[in-house]
Design a protein around this nucleic acid. Structure first.
Lengths: 348, 348
DNA sequence: CTGAAAGCGCTTACAG
DNA sequence: CTGAAAGCGCTTACAG
């Protein structure tokens, strides 16, 4: 067989190193992996060959043999399509970078949730990431805990004992937004609450009331409406707030979908935004830049949160495999107050 | 120690799939890699087994064997955030599955476009995918062509010579939607055109007018408005159409953002949708299911189009590497007419 | 301390 | 259209 010269891409292998150093591939491998059971003379010869040949281990070969590809499950129920897209983008980016694999399962009811979890476990996942609203499902969390599966809850308002989490500080975010409205000069500020089943809802509302109280403002009941985070519920809530006798000059909606609905209602009543009514949201989902005027809102780095969830998960899995104890990392990401065209000082 | 069926990390391999499907590992491999040389029956059996067992290829094994990681560039300018998220999801899913790398570059003006292309080339990409609206940029296409880089244009209305494409049939989609409105009983149908710089705009408009003409209806000029695909332009266009003396009973908007704006305007005029006005869109982006009532629209399988773009690109790269001639595949994906709550027969 | 053998999961190249 | 064989680069498990 004709000897082939080394082509581009035809890289130096551990066999080349071994041959060059005059040792077996095993000895070369041991040296490269810092295994202590190697004589000093051999070690030096191998290291010299590594350097001369410019050897870099092929990670595919190594990981194939050690088979340490992590499998990460993502279990979701029914978040908004926009949110999930952004989130999965981060998950896939990071998993592709780290060479880990991602399995995605969707569930609707509680029964299907059980089945979906089972499918993930059958597929051999090493850990499960839970985007909202599943991040707060007591049932799901308990089931994963019983099976000792490392779990990371994303965007929960109430990080649990024994489960890692990635989130923003909803309280501080809502506080910053309320302060911003106060600084613009607004005093009559309406608030649309989010779905009470989602843990961030209470935090956002509490921050609003606390910050208003600190400014010496008692928020009248007629300035508060209950929403469910959907556009439809936002239509009803905004109509309620805007029909009241004492109309607010600004409305702080607990998420962007409801804020978009609020703008539609205001528009319908002939109110110009932001000249006659300031409308702000929370989350900075794609709808915030779809509507016009574009929404002032609190940006959640959803894609980055996906990346971080994978990173934390990988650390936890490694810890798990090497028998070290759980770490339960809680990563709090930075939110940003994004000022766009839907907010302005009150008319006077 | 109790025997566990499948331990965490003890994953399903292609051998398991082959055994389960009763075929050789090679056939399983072919199906998984979309190799066309497989009988339909075998393909289906293997795909079923893949699904049942939850098989995901081990990238280490694959890349060890193929040892040729393809690099795919994605160059985009300013599509809507929602669209890009959906699209990138498909890109990353498929690239992760195939073990290829994805490099993403954003550009704004023409100058930055040149620089972005250069960065991709410097990074050694084997091909470039162009989502809209760059898919139609003569400048970008020419520059890539000059450098002989395999290119795939996504969602273009005018597939070019020498460039692969992934798209839906915009003409047929708009035709199907127009027929649907006619079948509901609408005769006075308004139409909002899209940005004339985007190639699908003309196709969607032509299909509308042709189909109306076939039904014996001459669309009056006052029933047509020009939009730019943005929500804002939709607000203006809808206001225009709805203020005319002879008000249409239905409005077909060239995309969802403008349809959402149309609903907001209708809502503002006290018109109930769909009882007093039917509103339909095109694309099925996340906003279609955010607004209320949810939009009847033409679904574009954006995520699947991302996956397909990667698959085609990989084939082209392989062809390129093995010295075979260019193939210039044009893949037309299936659209779906999704009926939701924004459409109904005209009131009478 | 050192090495020969085997195999991780996958796909190329060949044969039918 | 389908499959048996071989091997990508590395390291585990065993034997000396």
């Amino acid at each position: 067989m004709p000897k082939r010269a080394r082509q581009a891409g035809n890289a130096v292998t551990i066999l080349d190193v071994a041959r060059h150093a005059g040792v077996s591939p095993m000895t070369a491998s041991r040296v490269i992996n810092d295994n202590p059971n190697v004589g000093e003379a051999m070690r030096e010869r191998v290291l010299a060959s590594v350097k001369t040949l410019g050897y870099r281990p092929n990670l595919a070969g190594r990981s194939l043999r050690t088979s340490s590809t992590a499998r990460i499950g993502v279990l979701y129920s029914n978040p908004s399509a926009a949110y999930l897209n952004q989130f999965m983008l981060g998950i896939l980016e990071q998993s592709s970078l780290s060479g880990s694999q991602v399995l995605i399962e969707k569930c609707s009811g509680i029964r299907s949730q059980r089945a979906a979890t089972q499918r993930l476990l059958d597929a051999g996942v090493d850990g499960v990431i839970l985007p909202p609203p599943l991040c707060d499902s007591a049932q799901t969390l308990q089931e994963l805990d019983e099976r000792q599966i490392p779990t990371i809850a994303v965007a929960t308002g109430a990080p649990q004992e024994g489960v890692g989490s990635v989130r923003i500080d909803d309280y501080q975010g809502a506080r910053a937004m309320t302060r911003y409205l106060l600084d613009l000069g607004h005093r009559d500020i309406g608030f649309i609450k989010g779905d009470p089943k989602h843990t961030p809802s209470a935090l956002r509302a509490a921050a609003f009331f606390d910050t208003m109280a600190e400014a010496g403002i008692q928020v009248p009941a007629e300035h508060v409406a209950q929403g469910m985070f959907t556009y439809r519920s936002g239509l009803a809530a905004a109509a309620e707030l805007l029909k009241r006798k004492r109309r607010p000059t600004a409305i702080f909606s607990s998420n962007d979908d409801m804020a978009a609905a609020t703008m539609a209602v205001a528009h319908g009543m002939g109110l110009r935004v932001p000249e006659e009514l300031t409308v702000v949201g929370f989350d900075d989902t794609p709808v915030a830049t779809t509507v016009w005027p574009e929404l002032t809102t609190i940006h959640q780095p959803v894609t980055a949160m996906g990346r971080t969830a994978v990173t934390l998960m990988l650390e936890e899995i490694r810890r798990n495999r090497s028998g070290r104890p759980k770490a339960q990392v809680h990563q709090v990401m930075k939110y940003t107050l994004v000022k766009r065209q839907s907010s302005a000082p009150p008319a006077r």
